[in-house]
């Protein structure tokens, strides 16, 4: 399975994502520069964490207009797997590929620490290798990670089983403890925690590997 990691000016978890899928998952992976208008022959795309375009205006607000996002939008509508982590999640909501928005943490602080997530659904190409209700440990590192959406959208996400992860101990004020969500077609997932930073024992947790193993499993089945 071939992964592409999008690199925006200001991405800073691109190497972490590259290492996680290249070394710890053992799959071919390549970087895709933000001004590329195609994704090449990748099977899955990762929008990494960081501060794309300096997070100017709003997190992800400028990144959504970059040429590569047109290609990502097309890839997603063709059913390709798209994973947005942290800043990548912020870009996906700004681009309208996922509903809602990510706003300043309730406590105003940038929070960088390990959190515990509960797997809310295994019916997705990103969580199928997990058990429903399983606890995963991985870090968060964000200042704008408070998930917001109107009540109707939140009800819809729940009714359609599109909440992938909830925080066990809400760190940032996210509505309904949401840490990660899926698109309606379930091939796009955004999450604030960093699975790529938890992919080997030396990192303190290997639980994040579950996300990438799920993606790999989905590609094999496809």
């Amino acid at each position: 399975m071939r992964f592409g990691v999008i690199v925006f000016p200001g991405s800073n978890c691109d190497h972490d994502a590259f290492y996680a899928v290249g070394t710890n998952l053992g799959q071919p992976v390549e970087y895709i520069w933000h001004d590329s208008s195609t994704l090449g022959s990748v099977d899955a795309v990762i929008l990494p964490g960081g501060f794309a375009y300096g997070d100017y205006l709003r997190c992800g607000a400028i990144a959504k207009f970059s040429p590569v996002m047109k290609a990502v939008r097309q890839f997603a509508s063709d059913g390709g797997l798209v994973l947005g982590v942290c800043n990548g999640f912020q870009i996906l909501v700004e681009a309208g590929l996922l509903p809602g928005a990510l706003i300043r943490n309730r406590g105003l602080k940038f929070i960088c620490r390990e959190v515990r997530l509960t797997v809310e659904t295994t019916n997705s190409p990103f969580t199928s290798a997990a058990r429903k209700g399983q606890t995963l440990r991985m870090p968060i590192a964000h200042g704008e990670g408070c998930y917001f959406a109107d009540e109707r959208t939140l009800d819809e996400l729940e009714a359609e089983d599109r909440i992938a992860f909830r925080y066990d101990g809400n760190p940032n004020g996210s509505l309904r403890d949401i840490a990660g969500i899926l698109s309606r077609e379930r091939n796009v997932m955004g999450m604030m925690p960093h699975p790529e930073r938890a992919t080997e024992p030396l990192m303190g947790s290997s639980d994040g590997l579950t996300v990438f193993q799920s993606m790999l499993g989905a590609a094999v089945r496809a």
Binding site: I103, R104, N105, R106, G107, L108, C146, F148, D150, G173
Partner: peptide, 14 residues
Amino acid sequence: SLKSTVLDPQGQTV
């Protein structure tokens, strides 16, 4: 500005 239904922690702090 943020909609009235959206939490504004900066405003609250001020």
